[in-house]
Design a protein around this nucleic acid. Structure first.
Lengths: 133, 133
DNA sequence: ACAGCTATGTTATATTATAACATTCCGAAA
DNA sequence: TTTCGGAATGTTATAATATAACATAGCTGT
């Protein structure tokens, strides 16, 4: 892992929610990261190797919360609009159904996205944003 | 449906692939649409009422291909990276599993996104982009 | 007529992402 | 040890996507 990738990855691991590339840029100025491309390049590598996931619904990035996703199943993200936290799951059954739907149609899958936005259990209980872990 | 919404919706119905807001803007200049907000406002209304879906993976918009999606199941999109066409499906089983996964976790669902990118059957056969319909 | 609501229009700006090019670093081959 | 080549880095500029803030117009019910 190169230096910039390490900075970005550590930051994402410490964060409790998806960060945008520009959030990351701002947070890493003091590490000598000055331009968006430095961040985007590190993110591209990290995503490629499954250490980080891109969250399409919020244009953000999170560290993989599972087995450092070499795994091939889709990750399912639940995204709380209130506390902004992202929880990652896998579900064999959902994944295999999606895969067979694709197979039936002769569609060659490159990437799958499953994202659910809403309000997490903690935030519903709290009526206000749940405290950080 | 207001005038701007009609313009945008018609354009999306005629298109055979997701269009970006700026694609739409450019296409509707001669209808008197001049600013991004005019497009984004129309899109927001159309999406709200289920006539149009936003495709997160490509930052684009497509007209609903089903029952003018008052329906509540998730739409599953297959997005071909070659011909750029989007095909929309529903699948009760996948949807209900996703829903019960959420229920089990006490997550209150507001919106679900399922998008699969890859290569459609036509494009695999053709080795080159499939012709338009 | 007027109050209030929705739709519209306009300008400016914020946010997200990439192109194009120059430089540096480091390991393997000569 | 030098040098070649590829990967990583850095820098500037710009493209693409999205919203804020404010002004105006049109329509409806009283």
């Amino acid at each position: 892992m190169t230096q910039n990738e390490t900075f970005v990855y550590q930051l994402l691991c410490d964060a409790d929610r998806p960060l945008s590339a520009y959030n990351i840029l701002d947070a890493l100025r003091d590490k000598g990261i000055r331009a968006p491309l430095q961040v985007y390049r590190a993110l591209a590598k990290l995503v490629e190797r499954g250490a980080v996931h891109r969250i399409e619904s919020v244009n953000g990035f999170v560290a993989c919360q599972l087995h450092d996703c070499g795994g091939n199943e889709v990750s399912i993200f639940m995204l709380c609009t209130q506390c902004e936290r992202a929880h990652e799951f896998t579900n064999i059954s959902i994944d295999s159904r999606l895969q067979s739907l694709s197979n039936d149609l002769g569609f060659q899958v490159a990437h799958k996205v499953i994202e659910i936005t809403g309000r997490c259990a903690d935030c519903q209980t709290a009526q206000t944003a749940a405290p950080k872990h």
